[in-house]
């Protein structure tokens, strides 16, 4: 199985397919093949977008290095003066 496609890669392919479909003299079989692939990619992107959400973490630095905390805990830690 091919590796998980990124949104950007999918989008690039969607746009490339669009450019190809612009050619009115395309073979019908090829056009349909591209159309189906394009719809598949659009669907893939839509699914990805629907789930899209930001993940927020806070960087803490100490002598040992860096660690990440979620925002709520980080606020608490900072408020309590470490």
């Amino acid at each position: 199985m091919e590796k998980e496609l990124s949104f950007e890669e999918a989008l690039a392919e969607i746009e490339q397919i669009l450019r190809q479909l612009e050619n009115k003299n395309l073979e019908l079989e090829r056009a349909i093949e591209l159309y189906e692939r394009g719809l598949f990619l659009i669907h893939f992107c839509e699914e990805k977008l629907k789930k899209a959400k930001a993940k927020v973490e806070v960087i803490f630095k100490d002598e040992k290095g860096f660690k990440l905390e979620n925002l709520e805990r980080a606020s608490k830690i900072l408020k309590d003066g470490n």
């Binding site: 899209a52 959400k53 930001a54 973490e57 806070v58 980080a74 408020k79």
Partner: peptide
């Protein structure tokens, strides 16, 4: 600043916008 309104404003817009990892450096 982790307590700033600026961060809140920023995260409010950012959170539902894109699949993204946000690291806050206080």
């Amino acid at each position: 600043s982790i307590f700033s309104a600026a961060l809140q404003d920023f995260l409010k817009i950012a959170s539902e916008r894109w699949e993204i990892e946000v690291l806050v450096y206080p």
